[in-house]
Each structure stands twice: as C-alpha cells, then as structure tokens.
C-alpha cells in the first residue's frame, strides 16, 4: 500500500495554515462571544474551533494527540452545560438579576462552543487515525 498522506510535506500548505491558525482561533472565539447579538453562537463557533484540530491534521498527520484527554475535557464541558442552567436558570437567579442575562448567555455559549469544538475535533481525529484491527475486510 502506498503511504500518501493528505498534504504531507507541503511547504505552501504548512505556511498558509500556520498563518491562518491564530485567525481561525480568533474567529472561533469571536463567533462564540458575540453569539447572543450577532449571527453565530456556541455551535457555530465550536465548529470553527474544531477546524483547528482538522487544520493541524491536514498539515501534520501524525497521531501524537491523546484523544482520550480531549474526550475527557469534552465530557467535563458537557456536564457543565447541564449544571450551569440547573444552578443559574432554574433557581431563578438569572430572572432576579436581569443585568447579568448577557453574561449568562455568553457563559453558556462559551461552554457549548468549547464542548462542540472538542467533540467534533475528537470525532474527526478518531476517524482520521482509525486503524482497522488485524487483517480484516480490506476493500
């Protein structure tokens, strides 16, 4: 089997993605943080953050990331997404202090964004590095 990787050893790709990397990070957090009054939000910004993992995979397709750790972080944020409304919204805290409504929405957006980012990133990395076990169906 020939061992060709997507974009391996391409200088142009490496430079361009390296240049774009901080802007992608910035754009992702911009979309997340401004989600409650401009288009965007947790899911969209999280997808942009997930494309960071993808961009890294395109440039450097080596399995050196422990997806278990990323998965654990994703689960922590998933539980925080469930805890935050339980503590803040259902107890009436947000209703009692309407000034902090924006802060609450932004917090939820950040939690959802990070969770989606790690979740999609882990999904893509797991898929990209999946190796079939043993000599199985090869077609």
């Amino acid at each position: 089997m020939s061992d060709t990787n997507v974009g391996s050893e391409s200088t142009i790709l490496r430079l361009i993605v390296g240049l774009l990397y901080p802007f992608m990070l910035l754009f992702g957090f911009y979309v997340i943080l401004n989600g409650h009054y401009t288009p965007g939000g947790g899911f969209q910004g999280g997808s942009v953050l997930a494309s960071l993992f993808v961009a890294r995979y395109v440039v450097y397709p080596v399995e050196d990331t422990d997806t278990e750790v990323l998965h654990a972080i994703q689960r922590v944020f998933l539980s925080l997404i469930l805890i935050a409304p339980t503590v803040l919204l259902f107890t009436g805290l947000v209703a009692r202090f309407p000034h902090y409504r924006g802060l609450y929405l932004t917090t939820m957006d950040v939690l959802i964004g990070v969770q989606v980012g790690f979740g999609l990133g882990v999904a893509v990395l797991r898929f990209a590095f999946f190796q079939g076990v043993g000599k199985t169906w090869r077609l």
Binding site: Q44, S47, S51, V124, F127
Partner: peptide, 18 residues
C-alpha cells in the same frame, strides 16, 4: 447567517476532510 456559518464550516470543511 447562523446556518450559513454552520454549513460553511461543517459542510465544506469538516465533512470534506472526513
């Protein structure tokens, strides 16, 4: 626009790479 962002990132970014 919200759908547009999601479609652009997932549809032509992540899914293409998958």
């Amino acid at each position: 626009p919200e759908l547009a962002i999601a479609e652009a990132v997932i549809g032509s970014g992540l899914v293409t790479l998958l």
